Computed example of a mutant assay.
Amino acid sequence: MRLRAFYAILPIALCVVSAGFCSDAGERGYDCYFKNDLRGALASYRINLNEALRSADNVREVICLNNLATVYYGLANLDSAAGYIRLAKAASQANPSLAALAAINEQLLFFPSETTDISADAVEDLEDLLSAYEYASVLIGWGRVKLVRNEPNEALSLFEKAQKKLKKGKNPLGLANVAYYTARALKAQGEAKDALKQADEGERLYRIKNHVQGIKKCLVLKEALYRSLSDTQQADDIKRRINNLR
């Protein structure tokens, strides 16, 4: 199995800490993950998982298992990532919403040939378990799955819902991600000019957070869009910016 470039996943995989079930360890894991300190995130999420198991908290358990799968994937340990996905699926069998969370994460990371049907109602019910940012992350993750399935219209609808959630919280990083993936969906529809506007917005927001991986993926997308528009000068300029990015 080929590992896709990690910046294509960061920072929106289903790496979430439920607002209602968060602990200090969970918050530390969340902070480490978004600073790309994956070893630190791993240690914190393991502690968080143990806390969930001790308290028999099924919701937090499934969230932690998904978090660990995401982090192990980022560390290129695919066997461990797949193992935690299996554990998350097993632990969520009695709860359709949590099962949807595990299914989205599995498809987001591994895109298995046999995909699990994901219920829209089950995903909607996750809104009661997660914060606005975390729920938006789930919507973006599901939208990304739709993109891979060549369903850009459905992806755009999910990204729009995510954007509304994120605007309420004024979260630049979340809005940067939704702009980037909206640009990807518009590109898939052949709407290069509209896609460029979204990619520009994504880059602007990533720069607010100095998120180099996010800036880079927006620039890579913009180069491809300019080339699709036969604007070689702009595309070459973007390529130089990518090469100079530190």
Rank of each mutant, 00 (worst) to 15 (best):
L129I: 12
A102Y: 08
L156R: 04
E134V: 04
P112M: 06
S119P: 01
N105H: 08
N105I: 01
G141E: 04
Y135A: 00
S113T: 10
A100D: 09
E124R: 15
I118P: 07
V138Y: 00
L147K: 02
S119W: 04
A103M: 08
L126N: 06
D128W: 06
I118A: 02
L130Y: 01
E154F: 02
Y133E: 08
E151F: 10
V138Q: 04
L130H: 07
R144W: 08
E127Q: 15
E114M: 13
K146D: 11
W142E: 09
A122G: 15
D125S: 15
Y133Q: 10
E106R: 03
E151G: 00
E124T: 14
V148W: 13
P152G: 00
F111T: 10
A136D: 04
R144D: 11
T116M: 15
I118K: 07
L130N: 01
S97A: 10
N153I: 14
I140Y: 01
V148G: 11
L129F: 11
N153K: 15
D121W: 05
E151V: 05
I104H: 08
N105T: 03
Y133A: 14
A99V: 07
N150T: 01
E154H: 12
A100I: 12
E124I: 09
A136F: 06
D125H: 09
E106C: 07
W142S: 07
I104R: 09
L147V: 03
W142R: 08
D121G: 08
S137K: 01
V148N: 08
S97L: 07
P112G: 10
P96W: 02
V145T: 09
A103G: 09
D128T: 12
L139V: 04
L130R: 00
L130E: 01
A155R: 01
A122P: 14
A122C: 11
T115G: 14
N153D: 15
A155M: 02
L98Y: 03
V145W: 03
N153R: 11
L129Y: 05
A100E: 14
L156T: 03
G141A: 10
E124P: 15
Y133S: 13
L109V: 05
T115E: 11
E154D: 12
S137M: 05
E127L: 07
L130Q: 02
Y133W: 10
L108S: 11
A136P: 05
L126R: 07
E134M: 00
G143N: 03
E114H: 15
L147N: 02
V148E: 06
L129D: 14
L109E: 06
E127H: 09
S137N: 08
E106A: 12
D117A: 09
A120P: 11
G141P: 06
L139M: 09
E151C: 13
A99T: 14
A102F: 07
F111P: 11
V145A: 03
G141K: 02
N150C: 07
E114S: 11
E134W: 00
Y133I: 03
N153A: 12
Q107K: 11
I140A: 14
L129T: 10
E151Y: 11
L139K: 06
N105R: 06
L129G: 05
D117H: 13
F110T: 06
V145P: 06
W142H: 15
P112A: 03
L108D: 15
A136I: 00
D128H: 14
F110G: 09
S131H: 05
A155T: 02
D121Y: 13
R149T: 12
G141N: 05
